[in-house]
Amino acid sequence: MNKSHRGSVKLEDCEIIAHKKYEADQFVLTLASDYISNNTKPGQFVHATVSEKLLMRRPISIMSVNSKENTFDLLYKVVGDGTRELSKRKVGEQISVMGPIGNGFNFDSVKRPIMIGGGVGIPPMVALAQQLNLKTQKPLAIFGSEVEFPFEMEITDKSYPFIENPATMSLLHEWGIDCLLTSNSDFQGVYKGYVTDLARDFFNTLSAEELKEVKIFACGPDMMLKAVKTLASQLNVECELSLEEFMACAIGGCAGCVVEVETETGKSMKRVCVDGPIFDANSIFQ
């Protein structure tokens, strides 16, 4: 009787260490937790109580961890009652958090991880970037947003055939990871187009040998994920997608958060919370 899964998820009250507002109702919430900051795999999420006014918890992706300070960051955008209530929470208050939950990305042996994040799909990509080994991996992050980016940016002196002096996310720059930004709005140093347009331009700069080393990781709106899946399929590269869905228990008990998945034995409904949230692109959006 294998019971190794038992006790892997902690339920704790986490103090709000920082709660920073960005443009377009986007927020970065920093919470204190020894356990989550030291036991999270990229792609995992927490299930948080946002307010006493709302019963149900909200699943939110972990964006980054700080194992020295024992904190972790969440990025969210106000889109409904839950995130609106969460945005009112103040530094010093406690939030009930359950986590870390989910399977996480398979990225260890990937030589060229390409991380594509759209809007509030950016956080799992940042989490992945944080855990890469730059001695053996040559990553690139591509982040898209139709509103101002929810993080500090800076202009680099890099040059690509499709963009000169691109803007980048300062945090990833600090970590030594190349990051390009894209939007259909006009922002300085930001490529104009969809994430897949930028990704396609980038892949055109790679040799056939280099392309074989690529694996795409993506998180964002379904429309974007479907376009990324198509691109990966056209290029014949591996691709993992991070999904989101309304969740009740977030621990596999209620089967409320499923996605239709193709398996060797046929169609199956998998739980986004514990079977995911990361799925092989070939198995979904059929």
Partner: peptide, 23 residues
């Protein structure tokens, strides 16, 4: 049984609606 198509749950005042469909 595969159960119902998503969304299967939705929060309502002091409760929630579910339609899992006996997966």
């Amino acid at each position: 049984r595969l159960g119902n198509q998503p969304h299967r749950i939705y929060e309502t005042p002091d409760g929630m609606i579910n339609a899992i469909g006996l997966q």
